[in-house]
Structure formats: structure tokens, C-alpha cells
Simulated assay, not measured.
Amino acid sequence: MHVLVTGANGFVGRALAARLAAAGRLGDRALTRLSLLDMGFGDAPAREGLVHRHAGDLADAAMLDRALAGAPLDAVFHLASIPGGTAEADYALARRVNLDATLGLLERGRAQVLVGGAAPVFIFASSIAVFGPLSAPVTDDTLPRPQMTYGAQKLAGEILVDDFSRRGWVDGRSLRLPGVLARPPARTGQLSAFLSDIIRELAAGRPFVSPMSPQARTWASSLPNVVDNLLHAAVLDVMGQARRRTYTLPTSCFSMAELVDAIAQVHGADAVRRVRYEPDAAIEQRFGGFAPLHAQAALAAGFRADDSLVDLVRGALDGIGHPGAG
């Protein structure tokens, strides 16, 4: 089985690739090749057993031809994207990665089918950004109303995945991911990075200034939980789920004060006194007024949230190491 992961050197991509490589299989099928694609992989070897790393521009069709030559795709995890703040600042780059590259990957499924091959399973990492403001409870019937370029492009990707699946060119599943914690410190354009920073900094014994007030409510999931859900999507019986292909993943909804209390339970009670709240109106307006989520279709399909906020905090630093104090 040949599996491709795009954005494979990113936060979620590295964890997903590591899980796949360690298992050596996806569902009940053994992996014969795991192709990882990103702009770069540092000093990691280009090939390592079944793992093949390819550095380059995802929207470069010639590069993809070279990377995937002679190896039909059985499954694609399409994680690569240009996120929120960066997408707003650089529309051309966001369009190239979030739209053009997504369409190019889907076209590879079509080309594979037209020469007699099987349609690859296509797992598209969408985002809750498709909804826009989350000030009213979100259900399976909530209409997307994106308010940022990133959300609009993710919604377009969902529609393309549905259409290519309808035509039998891919077997698609789109997952609307919430915030994923805890991202390592990096300039990624993630406007919600403070949710990762607060866990990492308090776990390390350092003070933290929260840009949202104690009562501000938001959504997030741990990295291990999101990887579990991506892997589940790849083996999901879509036909047994009324042909539904787009899911808003279950996630934790919590206030900043509740998050701090959970961090204190895991990393020491003094974490509470090391937090100072200095709300940023723009940040709180965008991320601090999230209403409850009722993801009934996803729950019925076997997707799961973290068991508790404490479990989210415990899982948030898995795969990136526990930061030392200092």
C-alpha cells in the first residue's frame, strides 16, 4: 500500500508520519511505501526503509511526477496548507497551496482512475475556519460562512473533494480540524498559537500572559487525538455512513480559566499564579466566543474528542517532548 502525506514535516504531519511508519500498515493493509512531501526535511535522509522523503513545492506538477513516478497512490493525507494569518497577508501563496495544489492532487486521483487504476482514499484536512464566527452552537446542519481567505479556501477544498468523490476519481473524506495542541514555537501564521504557548510555558515553569480573559471560551484537541481521527478517517466505511464525506471533528470546548486549571492538575498547582490575563480584543473576538459543538455525525462515525481537558493537556506535549524548566 502506497500512502502519501503532504505537509509531512509540519506539526501534525510529523506525528502522523511517525505513527504510520511505526505501525507499517494502515488499517488491515501493510504499507509498501510511505511518501512524505514538504518544502524541506532538514537533515533527515531522503529514504529510510519504506519512508521516501521529497522536498519541494506541492503545486509543482513536475516535482510530483518525479516523486510519485511508478507508484500508484492508495491513500493521500493532504495536510499541507497556508494557515490563517499568513493566508490573509499573502493571497497568492495561499491560493497556490490551498487551492491549486489541492486540485492538482485530486487530478492525480482522476488520472489514476482513467488509466484503469483504483481511486485513492483522499483525507483532506479542512478546518473549523469554514464556519466563520462560532458564537452560536454548531451542529451538523450549521452552514459554513468563512470570514477569512483560509476558511474560504478550505471550504472550496471540501467541495472539490466531494465532487471528485461523486465522480469516482477519489474516495474522499474531509475533516474540519479544530486547534491542535501544543504546537512547538515557530512562525507558522497560526493566530491561535497562544493556546499552545500557554501549555508549553506553564509546563516549563515559566510565566505566561494570556491574550484572552479567564471566561473566554474556545475549542481545541490534542495532537494524539487528531492523529487518531485522521487514521480513523482513512479506514472509515463511507458507504455505511450515508455517503457523508465531511465531518466536523468532536473537540473540547473550554474557558481559559478551565484550561489553566487543567494545566495546574498536570504540571503543578503554582501554574495558576503564573498566568496574567491581558485580553487582546481582536484575539478574543476571533477565538474567545466559541459556543458548544454538537458533532453527532462524527461521533456516530467513530471519531472522538479527548476524554477530558486534563487528558488534552497530558497529550498536548506528546511527540514534541516535555519542555524543561528554566
Rank of each mutant, 00 (worst) to 15 (best):
T246F: 01
R245V: 09
A80D: 06
V235W: 02
A234L: 08
A62I: 10
G324C: 10
I198F: 03
D162V: 07
A69I: 07
P211G: 00
D197K: 00
T149D: 01
L181E: 12
R245I: 07
G104K: 09
Q147W: 06
T139V: 04
F11V: 11
F41Q: 13
A17V: 13
I159W: 13
A298W: 08
Q112T: 13
P144F: 05
V121M: 04
G109C: 04
V170L: 02
A281G: 01
L236V: 10
I320K: 12
A186P: 00
A262S: 14
A193E: 11
A203S: 12
R176A: 09
T102Q: 09
A193F: 04
R110S: 09
G151W: 06
D270A: 15
T188V: 04
P144V: 07
A75Q: 01
R14Y: 04
V113Y: 11
P133Y: 10
N9T: 04
R217A: 03
N225G: 12
R274Y: 10
Y91P: 02
M1G: 11
L177K: 00
A186Y: 00
A242N: 15
F41E: 12
A204E: 08
A234T: 09
S165H: 02
R108P: 04
P178W: 12
G56S: 11
R173C: 15
D60L: 07
D140T: 13
V3D: 04
L309T: 15
R14A: 10
G49P: 02
T86M: 11
V275E: 07
F11C: 08
A129W: 00
F41T: 10
G70T: 08
R145A: 14
S165M: 07
S165P: 07
P292I: 03
T142E: 01
I198H: 05
A325E: 14
Q112V: 06
T218S: 09
S192R: 10
Q296S: 14
T246C: 09
G168P: 07
S81Y: 04
V226E: 06
S213E: 07
L134R: 15
V235T: 15
G85F: 05
V209P: 01
L230G: 05
E107C: 01
C253V: 10
A233R: 08
L134Y: 05
A30Q: 15
V5G: 09
A242W: 06
A152L: 12
G157W: 08
A125W: 08
A234S: 14
R53N: 06
L99Q: 11
A89E: 14
T86V: 12
A325R: 15
V170N: 00
D90K: 10
L191H: 05
S127H: 05
D141C: 08
Q190C: 02
R206K: 15
D74G: 15
A295I: 10
R206C: 09
N225P: 03
R96E: 09
I198D: 01
S81G: 06
V76S: 03
M1T: 11
V97F: 07
G40M: 03
L160F: 15
D261H: 11
M212T: 06
S210C: 11
G56C: 10
L259S: 03
